[in-house]
Amino acid sequence: MFGPFRLTTPLSGGLLWKIPWRLSRHQKYRHRERLRRIDLVISTLDTALARQGQTMKKVERWKADMPTEQEMLPKDKYTVFDRKIKTYRKGIHKVPKWTRVSQRLNPPGF
């Protein structure tokens, strides 16, 4: 009845492993927290290197190109571009390993 091998429809009936089309608000919240955590890592690197009198191209490029969590539009935060979908957008939770990859920019105009 319980446990990892319980008989549920997704487990017993072949291809029924559905991902909801949109994120729940708790998923969104955790996603924002993750984005903010990455922003924090970048700013830590930047200040630490600046204190040593050094800069790094990779960090500078990230700061120039990538919007921070506050600057991002909700559209870019929770969805990504996908050419195969009618509206050209799908939920970010459909991206493989989406909690551990940075996906902030989308093609302009989409």
């Binding site: 955590r37 630490a48 050094q54 790094m56 960090v59």
Partner: peptide
Amino acid sequence: PITPSIAGQIMRIKELVDVKE
């Protein structure tokens, strides 16, 4: 130590780690 080489490596794994100075 705080060096550009270490910082570059952290950049690659920034989603996985917590970094403090």
